[in-house]
Every structure is written in C-alpha cells, then in structure tokens.
C-alpha cells in the first residue's frame, strides 16, 4: 500500500487544484490514446488473417456481444437504470433482420437500420410507462418482456418460423474483397461495432451524456438543474434498446439462424452479468464483457453444466463488493501503477 508513486499521485490529486492540462501534456496523452487506438485497429484488422475460421467466428461474436453491451452500458452504467430484458431487444433486432431477409428478400445491409429502428421504437414504447417511476419497476417490466417474448415468437409461426426458427443464407463476401465468408462477416461486424462505439462516445460527450450522468449520480439534483428526467431516461432506454437491436441484427448475419430458444431470459441475464464483470460505466467495459460472455461459459462448461452459472453469480456479487468498475476498472488501476517516464 505504501507504494511511493501511488501516494505521490494521491497527494497530487488532492493537493493540486484541477488545472487544465498544458498543451504539451495534452498532446502527449492524446498521442498516447491515438497510438493505442492505432495498435488496436491494426491488431483487429490483422487477426482474421492469422486465426482459423472458428476463432475468427468467436472474435466476431465477441464484437456482437460488445455492441449489445455498449447499449446496456449506456443505460445501466451511464444512466443508472436497470434492464433485465435486453435479450428481448437483441431478439427483436435479430428477428427483424431475419424476417426482412427471409420474407421480403431485402438486401442484408438494409436490414440493419430497420432492425435498429424497430428496437428503438419498442424501447421508446416500453420506456414511457416504466420510466415514469423508479428504476426498480423498469427491472420488473424488462424482465416480464424478456419472459413474454419467447412464447410470442413461437406463436406467430407463419412469420417467425415458430419453435423451429428461421435458417438464412449468410451475407456472401463480394468477389472484389477476396475474403473468406468468416473474414467478411468479421469485418462487417467490426465496422458496425466501431461505428456504434463512436456513436456511443459522441452521445456521452454531448449534452445527453452529461444529463445521464447527472441523473445517475443524483436524480433530485439533476432535476433541479433542469434535466428533464423522464425524457432523458426514456431516451436512454430507447438508445440502449437500439444498440441491442443492432447487435441482434449482426447476430443474424453471423449465425444465419434464429430461434426463440436462443433469446430466453438467460440471454438478458448473461448480458447484464457480462457488463457488470466487464465494467459498468467505462468505455472498454463492453469489450471486456463481450470477451467474458463469449469465452468463460465455454471454458467453465468443461467442469460442469452448471459451472458457468456458479461462476457468473459469484463473480457478479464479488465485483459489486470489491471492484464496482469491473475488469475495466481493475485494468485501469493496474495501468496507473506502471510508473511513467517523465
């Protein structure tokens, strides 16, 4: 604990008033961020040419989950509202894309905006009654939606294919790209994920993001400052549903198959678990959460069918106790421990 650099840093933080960073410092930190982003981007573009198709598929699914978690994070991490039913919006996006593709033979790039829009509207519709009240009721309503969705999907058989689901052709790589199918799907997903990430960052840096943080930290104070609670909470819910719907659409592209049993309450709860472990309210949390959701259950299942649940449950509780910012927070803490050259 008596690490000199840490105590020095702590003193600095408490003693020095928050001065605006000097241009040189700002430039250095911005340059570091850009460098990190460039390294990440290079790695993300290089990986699919080095990995076997199955691992490329797994990485693609990590990105799909990350997009969904990005939306959930907007709601839970930034606005402080609870959703136990984001799997339902994920499913709405997935089914919208599948049905458009299957029944009306819409070209697949067009299914994305429609799926996102459908999830957005649904989120808006359910957000209005639920957001007028405390967050707890939102959790109840979203849980009820997630439970209700599965029988609903099974009922409208002529549209959704019932319990059997729908099997679709995956988007084929265009000839000019020279990519294999798994690589093409990976890059499609990567582009959408990066766009979603940038949209999310932009949203959080705008007025909306500041309003959401104000609501999360103190609703009363936020209201007094002139933040319209119900409007912002409802919109946050709708945005968040939109990201989940987008992820669902990507899921349909990547898997090429949708069935009601892929979107049970378990999906919603797994998403929440992944986000909590990945890190609430941080930018890297959704990606870490996506990795967690994709890989941990598979590894744990080798021990016992129930092991993923046991691990998820214990980890969620442990994270809430000792590291409320999740893996992202822990990683940040570790990075800060590395002494910097000045």
């Amino acid at each position: 604990m008596s690490n000199p650099t840490e105590t020095d840093a702590a003193q600095e933080r408490t003693a020095a008033p928050p001065t605006p960073p000097r241009p040189a410092e700002w430039w250095r930190s911005a340059r570091r961020q850009w460098a990190a982003a460039a390294v990440l981007a290079a790695a993300a573009c290089y990986a699919p040419f080095q990995l076997v198709p199955f691992h490329v598929f797994q990485l693609t699914m990590v990105l799909v989950y990350a997009v969904a978690l990005l939306g959930l994070n907007l709601l839970v991490g930034h606005a402080g509202q609870i959703s136990l039913g984001h799997g339902a919006f994920f499913a709405v996006g997935a089914y919208t894309a599948a049905i458009l593709f299957d029944r009306w033979a819409l070209p697949y790039p067009l299914t994305l905006p429609v799926a996102a829009g459908a999830a957005f509207l649904l989120g808006l519709a359910f957000g209005v009654p639920a957001m007028r009240l405390r967050g707890l009721y939102l959790a109840l309503v979203t849980l009820a939606i997630a439970i209700f969705l599965v029988p609903l999907l099974k009922r409208f058989e002529e549209l959704t294919g019932g319990s059997m689901g729908l099997t679709l052709a995956k988007p084929a790589p265009p000839a000019w790209s020279g990519l294999a199918e798994d690589q093409w799907l990976y890059f499609l997903t990567l582009v959408v994920a990066v766009a979603a990430f940038l949209l999310c960052v932009g949203l959080l840096r705008s007025r909306v993001g500041r309003a959401l943080h104000a609501i999360r930290d103190n609703e009363g104070a936020a209201e007094v400052m002139g933040v319209r609670l119900s409007v912002h909470k409802t919109l946050a819910f709708a945005w968040s549903a939109m990201f989940a719907g987008t992820a669902g659409c990507l899921y349909t592209w990547v898997i090429g198959f949708v069935s009601p049993d892929s979107f049970t309450v378990n999906l919603s709860i797994t998403l929440l678990a992944g986000l909590v472990v990945g890190g609430l309210g941080s930018l890297s949390g959704p990606v870490l959460g996506g990795l967690f959701v994709m890989f941990v259950p598979g590894i744990a299942q080798d021990i016992n069918d129930a092991a993923p649940g046991v691990i998820f449950g214990l980890l969620i509780i442990a994270v809430m106790y000792v590291a409320p910012t999740g893996l992202a927070g822990l990683a940040g803490r570790l990075l800060r421990k590395i002494p910097r050259k000045e």
Binding site: G80, A139, V276, G313, I316, I317
Partner: peptide, 18 residues
C-alpha cells in the same frame, strides 16, 4: 438500488446453477 438489484440477480444466477 442498482447495486442491490445486481447483487440479488447474482444470487439468482448462483443459486439456480448451484
């Protein structure tokens, strides 16, 4: 409330799997 809900959801997953 958010923390409490998440903890009981964690308990839900854990007890179910246990």
């Amino acid at each position: 409330e958010l923390t409490l809900v998440i903890v009981t959801v964690g308990l839900f997953i854990f007890v179910n799997a246990a």
